[in-house]
């Protein structure tokens, strides 16, 4: 597949700072079911990448297996992608992000891919703070294998077949906060504006972003007895705040409204403005955030927005004190010790 995308806009199409049109951020045609929430997420990734003027060739996309994991083929064809094996997306992202620390890493996974078979890798990738946006397209079921329960399904919820889920659900967001993740958000595929703002902030963030997007599966989990149907989520979606994202290059120009708006500044100078809707929610307070999420879950609500933010933690390449240039392209001169050094090593073994 040769991609010949270049910064040559169609006459009327708006361009971003790099001169690219939105068309330059699209991928191949989706083969998912019409109306699948996953496609709405793909659309917002394209929008946010375009608006954030990402360099497409630096974007690298990773996924496991599932309907959700197919979606890296549907956005940013300018970037490379690695659709790997079920539940192992995080390790793929880890290796590539270490091999080349200049990549912009987007991981797409499903609730099955991440919260069951891939739980171990999810947990450890978050712990290591690898530089990536980790999107869980969360529909409460295994779409690709035709609608079995996943571990995020709410206890007591029903499958189309009538089967009831007897087990408590796992919440990726509280888990991520517990693991020390510095950027935890939840959104809804039916709320493009919020998802867009979160994604743009996520692109500017250095470490692991955990973004759980409730994304209804129209084929297997969109019935009345489901807690992950469009209707149910719309009725129970509880946005925490109006989010704004201001890229570092625009910081000077943008007027940041005073008052109730809280500003979080990233190491690169970008800013997130958070105008609270939910009274008393403090996204920089780790324990407060946990408490609020648990309370809302108990009420059957989905709190959405930026649940927790702490942009100061160093990402893995920094923790490992890696050289600034990509390890992948370091030359033999820097990598191979000299004959004299081999001799010294041999002498010590004599």
């Amino acid at each position: 597949m040769t991609t010949t995308t270049s910064a040559t806009p169609a006459p009327s199409a708006p361009t971003n700072k790099l001169g690219f049109t939105k068309q330059d951020y699209v991928g191949s045609k989706s083969t998912l079911c019409a109306g699948c929430g996953h496609d709405s997420i793909t659309a917002q990734i394209i929008n946010a990448a375009f608006e954030s003027s990402l360099e497409g060739y630096r974007v690298t996309k990773y996924s496991g297996i599932g309907c959700s994991s197919k979606t890296p083929a549907y956005f940013i064809n300018q970037g490379w992608g690695f659709n790997s094996v079920h539940g192992r997306m995080p390790s793929i992202a880890t290796g590539a992000s270490l091999a080349n620390r200049t990549l912009i890493n987007i991981g797409v996974s499903g609730d099955g891919d991440s919260m069951s078979i891939g739980m171990g890798q999810f947990v450890h990738a978050v712990r290591r703070n690898i530089p990536m946006i980790y999107i869980i397209e969360d529909n409460g079921v295994y779409g690709l294998t035709k609608g079995q329960f996943s571990a995020t399904a709410d206890k007591g919820s029903h499958l189309k077949s009538g089967a009831v889920n007897d087990f408590p659900s796992i919440d990726p967001c509280t888990l991520a906060i517990e693991l020390g993740c510095g950027f935890v958000a939840r959104s809804f595929s039916g709320n493009p504006k919020q998802l867009n703002a979160i994604l743009k902030a996520a692109f500017a963030y250095q470490g692991t972003v955990v973004l759980d997007v409730i994304s209804p599966c129209v084929t297997f989990n969109n019935h009345d007895a489901s807690t992950r149907s469009y209707k149910h989520v719309k009725d129970h979606d509880f946005p925490l705040h109006d989010l704004g994202f201001i890229q570092y290059s625009e910081v000077e120009e943008v007027d940041i409204p005073a008052g109730e708006t809280e500003i979080v500044t990233f190491p690169d100078g970008s800013k997130v403005s958070i105008k609270a809707i939910h009274e008393g929610y403090e996204p920089t307070d780790r324990f407060g955030a946990m408490k609020a999420i648990h309370e809302s879950m108990a009420k059957g609500e989905f709190l959405t927005g930026l649940l927790y933010i702490n942009p100061t933690q160093p990402p893995l390449p920094e923790v490992l004190n890696l050289v600034d240039e990509p390890l992948a392209t370091l030359g033999e001169d820097l990598l191979k010790p000299s004959p004299a050094e081999l001799d010294k090593i041999m002498q010590a073994l004599m």
Binding site: S84, T94, G95, L98, A99, N100
Partner: peptide, 15 residues
């Protein structure tokens, strides 16, 4: 499993 993932993806990315 994760070790293998790291090895192959790093190799894929040129390391």
């Amino acid at each position: 499993l994760a070790s293998a993932g790291v090895v192959l993806s790093a190799g894929w990315a040129g390391a």
